[in-house]
Design a protein around this nucleic acid. Structure first.
Length: 225
DNA sequence: AGTTGGATGGTCT
DNA sequence: GACCATCCAACTG
């Protein structure tokens, strides 16, 4: 949770030959080790989640529902699995590159392989407001061109194409943080699915999911870092 | 504003 | 063989 609070408000950058995409991370979820029944680490180390057991600050990228990739930042020390899922990003620069990347990702779906399907996909992306172009974990990865091959990348390298910049925002300038249950892990049972390990910044239109019933996160650091 | 169903494939028991 | 850390469009009210 400490790591999640540090990553919330941080800057995500994708820089390549064509463009620079910059966004502010406005929503995250914390995932723990084998004890956390909502975490991919609940089965121990597997081929998919190996990056979660790696060094902190590196990327863990997985695919859900067969089509959406999701970007996580590994948090624990080596061999201690933990990750923070980046659920939403507010665009700061490179919005057109984000739209183009969203469209690229969408057009890979089978429904978009007909002319009509493709046209619908393009219209949908075009209609999306700037603020919500990366609202949701699948959209974050799509907008920043993140895929499975990016898994294991060191996000803290200042010369990396994909990087995380946790610039020190003075505390008194930090906007208020709210928290609530993590999304989409009901299978883990109430003990784990109801823990308020989803954090977001107040008054950010890019935040996905429910905002009602939100509370400031507990001050006391919990067992999961 | 809220609900529903389809797309889609890797991962784990 | 069942289950997903999702998204989108097309419906209902």
């Amino acid at each position: 949770m400490t790591a999640a609070r540090a990553i919330l408000g941080a800057t995500l950058v994708r820089e390549d030959d064509h463009a620079v995409r910059i966004g502010r991370i406005v929503e995250v979820e914390a995932y723990g080790g084998p004890e956390d029944l909502g975490s991919h680490a609940r089965f121990g180390r597997t081929a998919r989640n190996a990056a979660m057991f790696g060094p902190p600050g590196h990327a863990y990228v997985y695919r859900v529902y067969g089509m959406h990739d999701c970007l996580n930042v590994v948090t624990g020390p080596e061999d201690v699995p933990g990750a923070v899922l980046i659920r939403a990003v507010a665009p700061v620069a490179g919005i057109e590159a984000m739209r183009a990347a969203r469209l690229r990702a969408t057009s890979r779906r089978r429904t978009a392989r007909t002319l009509e399907g493709m046209a619908r996909a393009a219209a949908g992306i075009a209609r999306t407001r700037d603020a919500t172009i990366a609202s949701g974990p699948g959209r974050v990865a799509a907008a920043f061109g993140v895929g499975i091959p990016d898994g294991g990348l060191d996000l803290c390298r200042s010369d990396g194409s994909l990087r995380l910049e946790i610039a020190g925002t003075p505390d008194r300038q930090r906007p208020s943080i709210l928290s609530g249950p993590r999304i989409g892990i009901d299978y883990a049972g109430p003990e784990w699915s109801l823990r308020p390990w989803r954090l977001w910044l107040a008054d950010e239109p890019a935040v996905s999911g429910r905002r009602s019933g939100a509370l400031p996160p507990a001050d006391r650091p919990s067992s999961t870092d």
